[in-house]
Design a protein around this nucleic acid. Structure first.
Length: 274
DNA sequence: AACACGCCCTGCGCGC
DNA sequence: TGCGCGCAGGGCGTGT
C-alpha cells in the first residue's frame, strides 16, 4: 500500500461521500490492527461532512465522530462493489445506496471512531498527535526542513530513517524514501549529520517532486493498491531503484543493490549514491 | 532514553 | 506439483 500519494488519491476519490448519510455497517468481526471501538448504532444516521488525510490516515468527519481509516500494507477501499470480496472487513452502506468496502488480507489496517468535541481537532487524536509536518503543506518550506534537521542532527540516524520516520516529515514510506534518495544521490546508509547542509535543498526538492509525481500518476499499484473504482496507478513504471536489485542503474548502468536497514529493504546504486 | 527487533497477518514467488 | 522459506507499501510494543 499506501504511502502518502496513494492515500491522497483515495481521499480525493472519496469526496463523493460528503453529504451522504450512513445507513448500516457490516463488520467481518476479524481483528484488524485494533479491535473495532464502535458499533453500527454509533454511526448509523451520521452524515459524512468532510474528508481529510493526515499522514497515511483517511479521516471522515461526521456530526459526532472522527472516523480514522488506515490501510496498513494491503488495505483497499472500494466504492460500490456488489459482491462480498474475500478479506472484506467492513462495509458502510449509505442511505442513497452507495457502499464503501474495506478489504485487507493482512489486516494491518484499522478503522476507529473518536467522539468529536467542539475543541478537539483530529490532529490532537492519539494516533495523530505525534506526527511530523505534512510534506505537501505550505508550512513545509526548505527553511522548515533544515530546522527539523537541526533539531535532530545529534541523533544517530541514517538518511533513510530520517526520511521514513513519521515524527519528522510524515507520509514517506519505503518506496518513495528509496526513490527520493536516488534522486538526491545520497546513500540510504549515510548519517544525517555527515550530509552537507546544502544537500538538504536537493532532498527537499526531491521529496516534493516525487510525491507530486506519484499523485499525478495515480500512485503506485504494486500488488494491492487500487483506486476506489478498482483502477490502478502507474508510478511503479517510473521507479529508479525500488524493487530493481540486480538490474542496471538507469544513470550509470552499474548494479542496483538491496540491503536491509531496520528490517526494511533499501535499494540503491553504490556509484550514484554516496 | 535511544535503538533494534519481533510481531501483527495472508499471499506470492522462488528454489529445491 | 508440492513444500518451505523469505519477502511484502506500516507501525506499535517490547526488551536491551
Amino acid at each position: 500500500m499506501p504511502e502518502l500519494p496513494e492515500v491522497e488519491i483515495l481521499k480525493h476519490q472519496l469526496v463523493v461521500l460528503e453529504g451522504k448519510i450512513i445507513n448500516n455497517v457490516f463488520f467481518s468481526g476479524k481483528k484488524l490492527k485494533f479491535m473495532y471501538n464502535f458499533k453500527e448504532k454509533d454511526i448509523k444516521n451520521e452524515e459524512i461532512l468532510k474528508l481529510y488525510r493526515r499522514n497515511k490516515y483517511l479521516i471522515l468527519q461526521t456530526n459526532k465522530y472522527w472516523l480514522l481509516i488506515h490501510l496498513g500494507m494491503t488495505g483497499q477501499v472500494i466504492l460500490n462493489v456488489e459482491e462480498q470480496k474475500k478479506h472484506e472487513h467492513f462495509k458502510i452502506t449509505f442511505k442513497d445506496g452507495t457502499t464503501l468496502s474495506y478489504i485487507d488480507p493482512r489486516r494491518f489496517g484499522l478503522i476507529m471512531a473518536y467522539k468529536r468535541t467542539e475543541y478537539l481537532e483530529y490532529c490532537a487524536l492519539d494516533l495523530l498527535k505525534n506526527l511530523g509536518i505534512e510534506p505537501l503543506s505550505k508550512e513545509f518550506t526548505l527553511k522548515k526542513y533544515i530546522e527539523i534537521f537541526n533539531i535532530n542532527k545529534t541523533k544517530n540516524l541514517t538518511m533513510k530513517q530520517f526520511l521514513m520516520d513519521n515524527q519528522y516529515v510524515c507520509g514517506i514510506g519505503n518506496i518513495y524514501a528509496n526513490e527520493i534518495l536516488f534522486m538526491s544521490k545520497i546513500s540510504p546508509t549515510k548519517k544525517i549529520n555527515t550530509i552537507n547542509i546544502k544537500k538538504y535543498e536537493s532532498i527537499y526538492q526531491n521529496i516534493l517532486t516525487i510525491l507530486n509525481k506519484a499523485i499525478l500518476l495515480g500512485g503506485s499499484s504494486i500488488s494491492d493498491f487500487k483506486h476506489t473504482n478498482g483502477l490502478s496507478g502507474s508510478m511503479q513504471n517510473f521507479y529508479n531503484v525500488y524493487g530493481r536489485d540486480g538490474e542496471n542503474c538507469k544513470v550509470c548502468n552499474n548494479n542496483i543493490f538491496r540491503i536491509k536497514q531496520n528490517g526494511r529493504s533499501s535499494f540503491y546504486c553504490k556509484k550514484c549514491q554516496k
